[in-house]
């Protein structure tokens, strides 16, 4: 059933949320991202696909300046969110990351209670006026992440005690709780089993209603299932970017076709 979605996808032209132009990333001497231009739309799921080491995760981490935490990484070019250059000197990466949330490859709940995990973001950003407000935010986030029913009775239990799929949804809840405008997901399902993967994919589709979601995946099926737009990266280059249906059914670039048909990667 999921495969059918490619065809019935609504491809309405949403406003552009993130505009990247001429992005270069260097890790020390390695040129990891070469001159990438891409526009990411609001309320859309955009998938980055490509073989391992093609730079898709690196590019994703440019969008909320997570590369700042790596000493040797250097980013050039122009990335704008809502028209504002996020690499501008005046921009505080802390404020940026509150706006652009991120979910990581491996579930990484903090060694705290489930409640504290989700409440962490709202607390540091001062989103809750009082305790009951915070309770509401946590409950809403956990509901959005479709994990509320599973954990509502043990909010004080440590987040590390959950199963892998639950942990990842907890991390999504944690990211959602900060009320970001963009949600970056770096292979969110790679450490999960198929059932958990299905849960998370379902969730991503729902999140699209409110957020611009960018997901990096090495699974083409997953990209096909959840995304409306797809970007194919290869050796640090953005090879092709377009409607997901288009990319998977009728790619323009021979490299994209080779990858999709399993000849490279």
């Amino acid at each position: 059933m999921n495969d059918m979605r490619i065809l019935e996808r609504d491809v309405d032209a949403n406003a552009i949320k993130i505009a990247a132009k001429g992005v270069q990333v260097y890790y020390g001497d390695t040129h990891a991202i070469k001159d990438v231009d891409v526009d990411i739309q609001d309320k859309t799921v955009t998938a980055f696909i490509g073989p391992s080491g093609c730079g898709k995760s690196t590019f994703l981490r440019c969008l909320n300046r997570m590369n700042d935490t790596i000493d040797v990484a250097r980013v050039e070019g122009d990335i704008r969110i809502d028209g504002e250059d996020i690499y501008d000197k005046a921009v505080d990466p802390v404020q940026l990351r509150a706006k652009v949330g991120m979910v990581f490859q491996k579930p990484n709940p903090f060694p705290k209670s489930i409640f504290d995990n989700v409440a962490y973001g709202p607390r540091i950003h001062g989103l809750a006026k009082n305790k009951s407000d915070l309770d509401d935010i946590v409950e809403r986030a956990l509901r959005r992440a479709a994990i509320w029913n599973e954990v509502k009775d043990r909010l004080a239990a440590p987040g590390t005690g959950l199963s892998g799929g639950q942990q990842q949804r907890l991390c999504i809840a944690r990211a959602v709780a900060t009320e970001p405008e963009v949600l970056l997901m770096d292979e969110p399902c790679s450490a999960l089993d198929p059932i958990a993967t299905a849960q998370v994919e379902e969730l991503i589709d729902e999140l699209r209603q409110n957020y611009s979601v960018v997901i990096v995946t090495h699974s083409m099926q997953q990209a096909a299932r959840v995304s409306q737009k797809t970007a194919f990266f290869h050796l640090g280059n953005l090879v092709e970017y377009g409607e997901t249906g288009q990319i998977f059914t009728n790619p323009e670039d021979p490299r994209t076709e080779s990858y999709i048909t399993g000849r490279i990667g």
Binding site: R140, A141, R143, R144, A146, I147, W148, N149, E150, V176, E179, I195, Q199, E202, E206, Q209, N210
Partner: peptide, 13 residues
């Protein structure tokens, strides 16, 4: 779906 919650029941964030 493993979770009983449907999107409609969730207050939009």
């Amino acid at each position: 779906m493993t979770d009983a919650t449907t999107p409609s029941s969730v207050p939009a964030m």
